[in-house]
Design a protein around this nucleic acid. Structure first.
Lengths: 202, 202
DNA sequence: GAAAGAAGTGAACCATCATTCAGAGCTTCT
DNA sequence: AGAAGCTCTGAATGATGGTTCACTTCTTTC
């Protein structure tokens, strides 16, 4: 045998792949899925368009990877907050705040994940992640009902409503972003979410 | 002058245009915006692809017309119910029911209007119609607050949340459509909407 | 240093549609 | 009937952008 990938070479290839994914994420964040052409992404990563195909079998596969990474982080964070011990209402409240703060911190990415027009493969992935959000929310709602902290309700409908409501409010933030203080905005959003699950009023 | 459109001829052309719009709506309902190519739509209407351009300057213009017609009907219906005289909570409740029933009656169209991937021109139109939904919901929420029927809240956030929540619940109806009785589903959805605005509990 | 094999390049290729257009077929009016 | 002007057709055109591939460049091994 005259050639065998050396560990350093493997690392270098993996690093290139990582860079490709993260540059693609940036491009998508900035210009959306539709405008993120293979050559734009390749340029951003400093490689030729053809080289993308050394790392991914198709543009779709790269797009799905980008989506999974970014969406996966969000689901993970949300899951941690929601699975923390303690009062379900308190956990939901914190989860909404964390989710909203992260989305407002990186609006471009939030929009890309939640609502931006995308090719079918990414759309399918989005469905899957929405499902995960619903599962997480449904758990905390069920928990609240079990503990008697929340009124009886259809946990799956409430969960879908929560993810839809929060997404809509965050994606089309109302009015001038500067005008409305972020904290006030988040407080109102959280209050809405708590009303939505029927949490006891103060 | 040797030729002038006769009234009958004008009617015939308008009828063709109407047929084109309604056939396009059907195609979009069935296969979504992405798959609704000019030739597919023309075939459905029984005309040649080129003839579409006798009635619309571009595919986008036709798509926008299709969207406006269908979405306009929904906004109108919703507006009528929400503007009826009477208790705001009652009006909201009826509005959610009407909206949901119509959406479930024609899921394909509901999906096309609310969430299906679409070209930018349709996306822009969708934003405009979402804004109209928000305006309608915000009005009823304000009305409720004024009358003391609803707790103080940010009407715009609640309105966005309502439209997002209802849309999400309807677009990804949970489980088998047959399994869950439509009436139960709608009752739960309505209950959620009322909690969301903080309506007094029974 | 040279052979073997992999990665990287980017211009050419190709598929997909929206759009155009030259000609065929109608309708209107004299 | 015939001229004029319109609608309709559908194959050709054109733009876009993902994908391929012959070639170059780099790495490894001996």
């Amino acid at each position: 045998m005259a050639y065998r990938k050396t560990p350093a070479e493997i690392r270098r290839l993996e690093a290139t792949r990582e860079r490709l994914v993260s540059c693609a994420t940036e491009v998508v964040t900035e210009v959306g899925w539709a405008q993120a052409s293979v050559s734009a992404v390749a340029d951003a990563a400093g490689i030729a368009a053809g080289s993308v195909y050394q790392h991914f079998p198709s543009k779709s596969a790269l797009a799905v990877e980008v989506f999974r990474r970014a969406a996966g982080r969000e689901v993970e964070v949300l899951g941690e907050v929601l699975h923390a011990p303690g009062d379900p209402v308190e956990r939901l409240s914190r989860a909404v705040e964390v989710f909203a703060r992260r989305a407002l911190q990186n609006r471009g990415l939030a929009y890309a994940l939640l609502a931006a027009p995308a090719e079918p493969a990414v759309g399918a992935e989005r469905l899957e992640f929405r499902r995960r959000y619903r599962v997480l929310f449904a758990e905390v709602v069920r928990d609240g009902m079990t503990r008697g902290a929340l009124p009886q309700q259809d946990d799956e409908i409430t969960a879908a409503a929560l993810s839809g409501a929060i997404g809509e409010v965050l994606v089309y933030p109302l009015g001038d972003p500067e005008k409305r203080a972020v904290d006030t905005f988040i407080a109102e959003l959280t209050a809405m979410a708590l009303r939505c699950v029927g949490a006891p009023r103060d």
